[in-house]
């Protein structure tokens, strides 16, 4: 009996430290943020004011613009990127393909860049007198340089291109590993049943990849909804608020403008609920198919 208690004690002691760190730096701040979101005031002078912050949010144009931008990035970038990484993974999964190791390494390489660094690199490549403009002028696609980073529509496009460049290889690795777990005999059976290449892709590969598609889309959504580093360093949220994301807005509200912690906390809770709701919807949609 004594020995058993000792083991129980040892076992709990092993999980204690890690749990304490997660609790202190994840759950406690999250709960505090909720109470903060019910308070108004400037800087450290805060007092409880019910749902005032949430009401303010409804009438706040910047809030809706940044929500819109963040959703826009997600809706455009994620499907393109995931489809591209799936196509690349299927192409690279063929063991007879020559040079697949080299291709895979090249396509994966962008993932090792630091987020701040590649954002600045893209800003430089897409500058008004930068490489892309020079190239497009040289091959006669455009006559005058485009102010990619300075024009609302183009700035969004550049951010999306940058995100796709950085993360396609990352998600491709997930699909590749999932594809390698599909047994060759399944394809053989499909072929004997008269499936052609496209049919065996849509009828065999896609259904078997469903769990990984769900996982990768949740991961991608989670990271794009929290987009910060890239936008801050590529466009700084400008011109105006046209590329600003919700994370950047929370940062501005707390640390750049006159700090209004309560309101910023309310906005961050809005993000939390959006992430939760979208995840639930996504799960439902994928289950139905």
């Amino acid at each position: 009996m004594f020995k058993k208690n000792r083991i129980v004690f040892v076992a709990w002691s092993m999980v204690l430290l890690a749990s304490a760190f997660v609790l202190i730096f994840s759950y406690i701040p999250m709960i505090q943020a909720f109470f903060l979101s019910l308070q108004t005031g400037k800087g450290a002078n805060l007092s409880f004011n019910g749902l005032a912050n949430y009401k303010r949010m409804i009438g706040d144009d910047t809030f809706w613009t940044t929500i819109g931008n963040t959703l826009f990035y997600s809706v455009v970038q994620i499907p393109i990127m995931l489809l591209l990484s799936l196509i690349l993974a299927v192409t690279l999964n063929d063991p007879r393909l020559k040079g697949r190791g080299i291709y895979r390494t090249c396509i994966f390489l962008p993932c090792v860049t630091s987020l701040v660094s590649y954002s600045i690199l893209f800003k430089n490549i897409f500058a008004v007198d930068g490489f892309v403009n020079n190239l497009l002028i040289k091959i006669n696609i455009i006559d005058a340089p485009i102010a990619f980073v300075l024009e609302a529509g183009w700035a969004k496009v550049v951010i999306i291109i940058a995100l796709i460049w950085r993360y396609t290889g990352y998600y491709m690795i997930f699909y590749l590993s999932a594809l390698q777990n599909i047994e060759g005999s399944i394809y053989e059976a499909a072929r004997l049943d008269g499936c052609n290449a496209i049919q065996s892709f849509t009828k065999v590969t896609v259904p078997l990849l469903k769990p990984i598609v769900f996982l990768t889309s949740v991961m991608a959504l989670n990271s794009t909804l929290q987009l910060f580093d890239e936008v801050v360093n590529l466009t700084g949220g400008g011109p105006g608020n046209s590329t600003r994301t919700i994370s950047e807005y929370i940062y501005d509200l707390s640390f750049n403008f006159v700090p209004s912690y309560g309101y910023a906390a309310a906005v961050s809770y809005a993000v939390f609920f959006i992430v939760a709701i979208i995840t639930i919807i996504q799960k439902g949609v994928l289950k139905e198919r």
């Binding site: 730096f25 999250m30 989670n222 961050s268 939390f272």
Partner: peptide, 18 residues
Amino acid sequence: LIASMMVPFAARIIPMFR
């Protein structure tokens, strides 16, 4: 512990800063 992965970082920074 795992559920805390879903908490957006932005929802934690202000209390952490304080």
